[in-house]
Amino acid sequence: MRALGVLSPSLAAKLENEDKYILEIDSLKIPLALIHIPDTEFDENDDQQANIVLVKKKGFSLNYRDFGIIENAWNKLKNTDQDTYYPIGSEFCGEVLKIGKNVENLRVGDFVIANCSYPLAPLGAPAGIPSNHGSKELEMFHKGKLIKVPENIPVEQASGISIGIQTAMSMIRKADIKEGNKILVTSITSNTSLIILNYLKDKKCDIYGLSYSGKDTNKVKTMFPFIKTIYNFKDNNLPKDLLFDAVLDPFADTHLVALQPNLNFEARYVTCGMFNQSSEKIRSKESYVNFPSFIGRLISKNIQIKANCLGTTEDLEQGLKILSEDPNSIIPVDEAFSKEEDINLFLDKSFLKTKKTGKVSFIYS
């Protein structure tokens, strides 16, 4: 089977330059490659695998969280003298190949994606993202960590929606949006925000966008014409008198402090992550704030900060239902790659070295 992996130095040295990809994270240069590895063995009659499902991946994608996973993997591999690797990938779509004796919620032949339900998971499964190895062509999962994907959702799209839908639906729920509210969605071209916008379109409220650089916002405005205005964070052009009742923000370390003056009394600020994923950036003094002063301003306006990690099974089910049944539902896929020789192009777009709007998937052919 195949997998996209972080390579140990000795294994990377055995590959030609064109067969590997060097990812630069701060001062690190980390080798990645699509490699062939031994198949995963699965015995459907084994009592120890009674609740387990073997999935053959049809496609996978990478997320922003993979930066941190890749760095951690490299820190463990860089000093070894063995030919070894760490498979990566946060999301996937696959076909059920085999099931254990106690699996009743899925059948062989079903197409499935990850159920990242958190903090609880169904059927006695562990909570959270089921795998950091989503690119492994064959992988075993607990039956509660998978959910059947509707047939009319294409593999190219299904390969990169689990985390996004579960997160977006949960953030919108926690934002407690009311009719007439002013809503701001930050990092408007990010994958999470594009999915959030898709599920905001039927809300009876005023929706605004914020882009860090101001680039490629016309595409977003075309896809989601209900957005009233998209502002530019770097230009600091948010009107001082524009106050938001709710903010949906994928990158709190970039926006939270700066947006505080534009938060209305009793506003809800929902965030699901940070932009600075690498250890060097996290330790940087540039990320420090005057905490007492900042908290004091939030208290004075009764601001609610809601941290969000993933979402519930119900969030994912509802999001998939809308995506499947609403012809106007838009979760964009920028490009899908399927040739092994195109893996570096896939990685360039995944890691934002080339422009994209939406998810990028790699399809196993």
Rank of each mutant, 00 (worst) to 15 (best):
V155L: 12
M274K: 14
R107C: 13
L243I: 13
L316R: 01
S8M: 07
H142F: 04
T80R: 04
I230L: 11
A267L: 13
K78F: 05
G109Y: 07
L298P: 07
S365V: 00
K285M: 14
N45E: 10
S329Y: 04
A246F: 11
I331F: 13
S329R: 05
H36P: 00
A168G: 08
F362T: 01
V247A: 14
T84M: 03
K56P: 00
P327V: 14
I35D: 09
S361K: 01
I30D: 05
F42N: 09
I25N: 04
I88Y: 03
V149Y: 05
D83R: 06
N105P: 01
N218Q: 14
V270W: 10
L123P: 03
D81V: 09
D235A: 14
T80D: 02
P154D: 12
W74Q: 04
F275K: 14
V112I: 10
I129M: 06
F351A: 04
Y199T: 07
L316P: 06
G134I: 06
G100C: 10
I177W: 02
A246K: 08
E314P: 05
N262P: 10
M169H: 07
E137C: 01
V333W: 02
I196P: 11
V185R: 11
L7A: 05
E325R: 10
E286T: 12
V108G: 02
Q260Y: 06
L248T: 11
I30T: 08
K143F: 00
T312D: 13
L28I: 09
K301P: 11
Q49N: 11
L200R: 08
